[in-house]
Design a protein around this nucleic acid. Structure first.
Lengths: 107, 107
DNA sequence: CAGAATCCTCAAAGATACTG
DNA sequence: CAGTATCTTTGAGGATTCTG
């Protein structure tokens, strides 16, 4: 999995699953990402056949990224993970508090 | 997700889902992991309530790690990811070869 | 607009040594 | 056996600059 997508890959894939987007559009939606990281993540997704890069003939140039059928099949397992987090986050945080309290009351 | 488990976390969870294991037993099964990384991963899993640490009263000391019910619920989404990889890995690798060939024939 | 190239930094991983 | 402590190294990511 680590080979397939980096830190941002999953999020990008989810966004593109919704609708195609352009480079700076993604950059805006992914708050905090740098151009470098975005370009890098897109190259990897493209290389693995999960997204496609389409150059729109315009001035100035515009590039649209679209999810592929293959990429779309991957979104389902991801949604299962999202769902798990939503369902169990509260429980996990309780465990964390209990763990941290037993160890070091200061933090 | 990154908060829940690091690089090894998923694999450890899957192993423990099968049966409880001891520290050095895990170390053997996870080829290439260092003690430090293993201890670190186990602490994180423990902190999030996904595994439990049980000290067996013996000489020399023995520690067993067991998956919790919460941890077990997480294994299902993971299996879906494993399954996806198994089903689509060949296709992904084809895309990679095509991508690499078009770019840089040397590597 | 959509990147590639460069430099830099800091946190994570590895190696090693030590201990109850 | 099951770790912790310490030091070093590496590389991913950020900031910045440049370009078709």
């Amino acid at each position: 999995m680590d080979q397939l997508l980096d830190k941002w890959g999953q999020l990008i894939l989810t966004l593109l699953c919704e609708r195609p987007r352009r480079f700076n559009e993604l950059k805006r939606d992914l708050d905090g990402i740098t151009q470098k990281s975005l370009a890098q993540a897109l190259r990897r997704l493209e290389r693995n056949g999960l997204v496609e890069r389409h150059v729109l003939e315009q001035r100035p140039i515009a590039v649209e990224y679209r999810i592929t059928p293959l990429g779309r099949t991957l979104d389902e397992p991801f949604l299962a993970l999202f769902a798990w987090t939503a369902d169990h986050l509260a429980e996990v945080e309780q465990h964390r508090r209990a763990y941290d309290e037993g160890r070091d009351p200061s933090r």
